[in-house]
């Protein structure tokens, strides 16, 4: 679905501020996968995902989405951006509409939706984000709380029904309830077949959401593989400047006493298993 071949990018090239942001990264994300991209702040993860819908172009290397070369003049970037929906960090800072309805409807309207079809798309995405649509549709998005604004911003992307949903630190600043709602939504969407790319520096969330992890350090890809392999390699995780999720630390200790204990991705999963429940 998304392929990067030997992609590199340097910011402010030729000036004293020159910084190599991405260094020769190759990767491939298949349809229906859920991939977490992890790394410290400044490791290049936010830059990396902006290649995925052609928002930025590499200095060298190639980017393909659905087989189309984004560097080719014949590629229609508009249609690529419909396929790959990107939720930026702090998307609520880009609000512009007077009502929640108009904010969420903007994308699908540009795709040609109107009338009942448009309303259904807006209503569904608001409802997916935990709102009662008729309660919020006519409110100003600017008057909502921080967590509500974030969920409206995400609704405005999912209303376009993209094949691939890319979210850059979507839970940052969200409270426990908002975070849980979003994480459950993402897991369900992936189960239904939507490709998911989840950028985060929260390791508990990366573990819970994705079976595959891509780890970035100083603009380089330093790990690409199974999240269980990643999070159980303490040396690797600490070497990147990240932390091992607490539940993995506990699981490792318990595994010695309970060899049949399967790998657990959340505390609840661990407790459910220990109680003999249907955790997995």
């Amino acid at each position: 679905m998304i392929v990067l071949e030997n992609v590199s990018l340097t910011y402010d090239s030729g000036t004293i501020f020159q910084k190599a942001a991405i260094k020769n990264v190759s990767l491939s994300i298949r349809k229906g996968e859920s991939v977490s991209i992890v790394g410290k702040i400044g490791s290049g993860k936010s830059t990396l995902v902006q290649f995925f819908n052609g928002l930025i172009k590499p200095d060298s290397g190639k980017v393909f989405v659905g087989g189309e070369d984004l560097g080719s003049k014949e590629t229609n970037l508009k249609s690529v951006r419909r396929k790959v929906g990107l939720v930026f960090q702090y998307p609520e800072e880009q609000f512009f509409a007077e009502t929640v309805f108009d904010e969420v409807a903007f994308g699908p309207k540009n795709m040609g939706l109107s009338g009942k079809e448009l309303k259904d798309a807006v209503w569904q995405s608001l409802s997916d984000m935990g709102f009662n649509p008729s309660d919020v549709a006519n409110l100003s998005p600017f008057g909502l709380s921080g967590g509500e604004k974030r969920r409206i911003a995400i609704a405005s992307i999912i209303a376009m029904n993209p094949e691939v949903l890319v979210l850059d630190e979507p839970t940052s600043g969200l409270d426990y309830t908002g975070r849980n709602l979003l994480i459950e939504y993402l897991k369900n969407e992936n189960k239904k077949g939507r490709t998911l790319v989840f950028v985060t520096h929260n390791m508990d969330e990366a573990l819970e959401v994705s079976r595959r992890v891509i780890a970035m350090k100083d603009g380089k890809k330093v790990f690409d593989g199974n999240s269980e392999d990643f999070f159980t390699s303490e040396e690797l995780v600490y070497g990147i400047g990240l932390d091992v999720p607490f539940v993995v630390k506990v699981w490792k200790k318990l595994k010695k006493r309970f060899p049949e204990l399967p790998f657990c991705r959340s505390s609840k999963e661990l407790v459910d298993f220990l109680y003999g429940g249907p955790a997995r």
Partner: peptide
């Protein structure tokens, strides 16, 4: 007021 909310785990700690 939430001074570590935007930081990665190492900086946060």
């Amino acid at each position: 007021d939430e001074i570590t909310a935007l930081l990665d785990p190492v900086n946060r700690k």
